[in-house]
Nucleic acid binder design. Structure first.
Lengths: 340, 340
DNA sequence: TCTCAATTTGTAAACGCTTACACTTTTGTT
DNA sequence: AACAAAAGTGTAAGCGTTTACAAATTGAGA
């Protein structure tokens, strides 16, 4: 291992510039109480020596390191990757850094990571994705605990509690409308595909149920199917399911990958899309335009959600109020898989 | 804004447990010089009060916050999202946190983010993606500067310099082989699609050129095409290009999205894949199995690359040696777009 | 019981900043 | 020219840890 060069400190700079460390600090923090002349001299020294103030020390001294923690199940997930990308860019534009934890689905890991964020004294935590909301309130205590110290922002999750701020897309209406769309295209047996139980999955499911009710179709629970894994596994799961004798003429999927898994299943079995089977996905990800026919999908305005979240957060951190719950409407994007 | 609860400090714990802060610190750091009895008492107090040590202060005191900085152009990119996901999980398993910056392609932003990482006194920086290597060495000075203080790990990039460690996939061979494959399937006019000039793009291009040479095909520079933007833009760019009179019977693309853009172009124009046009993508992302026919692609072993990177890094941080350059071979995954 | 070493615990000085407060210099008024 | 106010600068006390080093305790052997 190579010998590390010692990094400069504020003392080095103050000595070189012939001022006190307080003055250097003021320059670093754009304080108005420094004369133009001094400021320039100090800035010159800083630039020349490549000095970069130690963020730990700044954090300790000022009580804020201008850092936000983001938790998500997995950035490898296309939707979450988009969200994290938007969030990080927005935060950085506002002068905040991002600490990322991909917690997976394991409850204990989520709790541990959330707790660790407290230790890093982040200025706020953003929970990206509805997996963070557990089904029973007591299990959400870990979120509420943290919110006693710092604001917690939920992306696609909802907990009614002080200092927790929620930005959601209107999954209920989105899925109500999507199910209606399938009905209008003639579907009468609509398969509902999901991965895991989560806050937004439940909203989607309710929308689906309500639409069926309004169409006077009785809910058939055997048409509510949980799938796991990657594309290939989804496909083979559906093949098995189909061969068990289940019939359906429409698919409403909680994400695009599930929907495309269904398309691959159909192709393998020889079911024609969209004529014999109409499919709607969700998230309007790049996947939806890779398939042929292209996949009709629900655009849940990920970017807008993220922008809202960050701007609420910035308002909060400046001591202002913010709305506790914002629900954004979605867009239905019709494409080939529902063209009849 | 809600009144923040004050967080506990090591003093609170020491008082409650009736020991000195040094002892609490020792317990926190698993020091062996604490009696079993004391340790248990302190741990009990810590658990009960939900105390989480302040990471800034630990960082200041110990000189390391056990944090790694990751820079990538954009986590919304499927390949980078995968990489970041693997890296973060591996790092966390080793007790390190991750600070993420999505720098985009802008040189100044890259430099600024890299510099800021120094300020955060991260223990190392990982540059994920070959966009970080500029074409001329002096422009890479910003990387070398940082490497004087902390190790820099390059994912798919190469700079020969002390304290910079490179893990690359063998893009040269991958593209040589892929071009050969296309030749063997009968292609004689192979379109090379790329996005921006980067270290790995250049390797890929060299592989492509070398293969052509070995097949005694003269390099036609008009068949080397730079594309920008998302799927739709790629498609329309290719339509324009085609209508300008360019002809080709094979496509070798630097990523899967480009390849699928080419497939969409072909469908629009009425060119049949794979009979009239064979296509090979790169990264073996989920996109490659969404299209139909499915896309032949190059699997560049992203996970292995990440695992290697993290384990080298851990070795380095423990003061051991690490290999400066590791090149991983890739796999070619034949699918429908090259089936003849 | 006494001594010495080994083990355990405590004290206090870093670590590199921020910031309240005190002090000095400059500026503007009369 | 004298003075007050304003502007600029410095001093020193935190911030919450880690970690030498010193001090206290324990235990074993004589």
């Amino acid at each position: 291992m190579i010998e590390k060069e010692k990094q400069h400190t504020i003392y080095d700079i103050s000595k070189k510039a012939g001022v006190s460390i307080a003055t250097v600090s003021r320059v670093l923090n754009d304080s108005p109480k420094v004369s133009q002349k001094t400021r320039e001299r100090v800035l010159a020294v800083i630039k020349e020596s490549g000095y970069e103030p130690n963020a730990y020390a700044r954090g300790l001294g000022s009580g804020s390191m201008r850092t936000i923690g983001i938790l998500c199940a997995d950035v490898a997930d296309i939707y979450l990757a988009n969200a994290v990308s938007f969030l990080e860019k927005n935060l950085r534009q506002n002068g905040f850094n991002t600490i990322l934890n991909c917690t997976g689905d394991d409850y204990k890991t989520k709790v541990r990571c959330m707790k660790a964020m407290e230790g890093r004294r982040v200025d706020a935590v953003i929970l990206a994705g509805s997996q963070y909301i557990e089904s029973t309130l007591p299990k959400n205590q870990y979120i509420i605990d943290v919110s006693r110290h710092i604001p917690v922002m939920l992306l696609n999750g909802y907990i009614k509690s002080d200092n927790i701020y929620c930005n959601l897309s209107d999954d209920y209406s989105a899925f109500y409308d999507a199910a209606m769309e399938l009905y209008q295209k003639g579907c009468r047996k609509i398969l509902f595909l999901y991965r895991e139980i989560s806050y937004s999955r439940n909203l989607k499911y309710k929308g689906y149920c309500e639409a069926l009710k309004d169409c006077q179709i009785e809910l058939d629970e055997s048409l509510v199917l949980r799938c796991n894994g990657k594309m290939e596994q989804i496909k083979s799961q559906l093949i098995t399911y189909y061969k068990e004798g289940h019939e359906f003429d429409g698919v409403l999927a909680c994400d695009d990958e599930l929907a495309i898994g269904a398309m691959k299943f159909a192709r393998e079995i020889g079911i024609h899309i969209p004529e014999e089977l109409a499919v709607i996905g969700c998230n309007n990800s790049v996947l939806s335009i890779c398939s042929s026919p292209e996949l009709s999908s629900i655009d849940n305005k990920c970017e807008l959600l993220c922008i809202n979240t960050v701007s609420s957060l910035m308002r909060l951190l400046e001591g202002q109020e913010a709305v506790q719950k914002t629900v954004l409407s979605t867009d239905y994007i019709p494409r080939g898989t529902t063209k009849r």
